[in-house]
Amino acid sequence: NKFNKELQWATWEILNLPNLNEEQVKAFIDSLKDDPSQSANLLAEAKKLNDAQA
């Protein structure tokens, strides 16, 4: 289903952001699991944090 694909993509993207630490990655992944419908928003937040920590 649509959410599953978005969830998988967002998870992969977050796991490959170079500037997030392990705790941050885990928090984002946990949030994705809690509410897959928010995957696009969570991914945007993760990318923002990644850029801020570059």
Rank of each mutant, 00 (worst) to 15 (best):
N16D: 05
N19R: 03
D35F: 07
Q38M: 08
P36Y: 04
S31Q: 13
I14G: 01
P36D: 02
K2I: 15
E22W: 13
W12S: 14
K48I: 10
K47I: 12
D51H: 09
P36T: 04
L32M: 14
L20P: 00
K26W: 10
E22L: 09
L20N: 00
A40V: 08
K33D: 05
A46K: 00
F28W: 03
E6D: 10
P36W: 06
A27D: 08
A10V: 14
P18D: 05
A54Y: 06
L15V: 06
S39Q: 05
V25D: 00
K47E: 04
L32F: 03
S31T: 10
P36V: 06
L42D: 00
E22I: 12
Q24Y: 02
P36N: 04
S39Y: 15
V25Q: 13
I14S: 01
E6Q: 05
L32Q: 01
Q24F: 02
L7R: 01
L15W: 06
Q8H: 04
N21H: 11
P36A: 05
D51E: 14
P18S: 09
I14Q: 01
S37Q: 08
A27Y: 11
K26T: 10
K5Y: 04
D51V: 09
A52S: 11
K2N: 15
D51T: 08
V25A: 11
E6K: 03
Q38P: 01
K5L: 02
L15E: 14
N50V: 01
K26V: 07
F28I: 04
N41W: 14
N16K: 07
P18L: 09
K5H: 09
F3P: 15
K48A: 11
I29W: 03
D30K: 11
F3H: 15
N19M: 05
E23T: 05
A27N: 10
D35P: 01
K2L: 07
T11R: 04
F28R: 00
L43H: 03
D30W: 08
F3M: 15
W12H: 13
N1V: 04
A44Q: 06
L49M: 08
A40E: 08
V25Y: 05
D35Q: 09
V25R: 14
E6N: 04
E22K: 13
V25L: 05
T11H: 03
A27T: 11
S37T: 14
A40T: 09
L15K: 08
N4G: 14
A52P: 02
D51S: 07
L43V: 15
W9H: 13
F3S: 15
N50M: 01
V25I: 12
L32G: 01
I29G: 01
N21E: 08
K5A: 09
K5F: 03
T11W: 07
K47V: 09
A27R: 14
D34G: 10
Q53V: 06
N16F: 04
A54T: 10
Q24V: 05
L49N: 02
Q38L: 09
S39E: 05
E6V: 07
N16V: 05
L7F: 06
A10P: 03
D34L: 12
P36S: 04
K33S: 10
D34R: 13
L7S: 03
N21M: 09
A10K: 03
T11A: 05
N50L: 01
K47L: 06
A27W: 13
A54Q: 08
L42S: 02
L7T: 04
A44S: 08
D35K: 08
L7W: 07
I29H: 03
S31D: 07
K47H: 10
L20R: 00
I29L: 12
N1R: 04
L7E: 07
L7P: 02
S37N: 07
L32P: 00
L49G: 01
D34F: 09
K33Q: 13
V25H: 07
L17V: 00
A10G: 04
S31N: 08
L20K: 00
D35V: 04
E6A: 06
K47F: 05
A40K: 14
N1M: 01
E22A: 14
E13I: 11
L49D: 02
N1L: 02
A46D: 00
K26Q: 11
Q24W: 02
Q38V: 05
F28N: 00
P18F: 06
E6T: 05
W12P: 03
N50A: 04
W12R: 06
S31L: 14
N4T: 14
D34W: 11
D51P: 01
P36R: 02
K48P: 00
L49E: 03
W9T: 08
K26F: 09
E45Y: 08
K2T: 04
Q8S: 06
A40M: 15
D35L: 05
D34V: 11
E6Y: 11
F28P: 00
D30G: 12
L20I: 04
W12F: 11
Q38S: 14
S31V: 08
Q24P: 00
E23S: 10
N19Y: 13
F28A: 03
K48F: 10
P36F: 10
A52D: 11
S37Y: 05
D51K: 09
K5P: 15
E23H: 08
L43F: 05
L43R: 04
S31F: 12
W9N: 08
A44V: 11
A46I: 02
I14D: 02
D51Q: 09
K26S: 07
I29V: 10
K33N: 15
A54K: 10
E6F: 14
F3G: 15
I14E: 02
L43P: 01
L7I: 13
A54V: 09
E45S: 07
N4I: 14
V25N: 01
A10W: 04
I29R: 02
N19F: 14
S39T: 09
F28K: 01
N50S: 11
A46G: 01
D35A: 07
L15Y: 07
Q8I: 14
N4M: 09
F3T: 15
E13H: 07
E45R: 06
N4V: 09
V25M: 15
L15F: 05
E22T: 12
Q53P: 03
A52W: 10
I14K: 01
Q8P: 02
L43E: 01
E23D: 09
W9G: 03
A10R: 03
K2P: 14
L15S: 11
N21G: 08
D35T: 09
A40Y: 13
E6S: 04
D51I: 07
N16Y: 04
Q53D: 02
S31R: 13
A52R: 14
T11P: 02
T11M: 13
P18T: 12
L42Q: 03
D34H: 13
A44G: 08
W12L: 12
L49I: 08
A54M: 10
Q8D: 04
I29S: 02
D30E: 10
F3E: 15
D34Y: 10
K26H: 10
W12K: 08
A10F: 15
A40I: 10
A10Q: 03
F3L: 15
E13Q: 12
K33W: 15
S37M: 07
K33G: 10
A40D: 06
Q38Y: 05
A10N: 04
K47R: 13
E45V: 12
K5T: 10
K2S: 15
E13F: 06
K48Q: 07
I14A: 01
K47G: 04
Q24R: 01
N41G: 08
F28Q: 00
E23G: 10
L17W: 02
L32V: 04
L32Y: 01
E22H: 14
N16P: 00
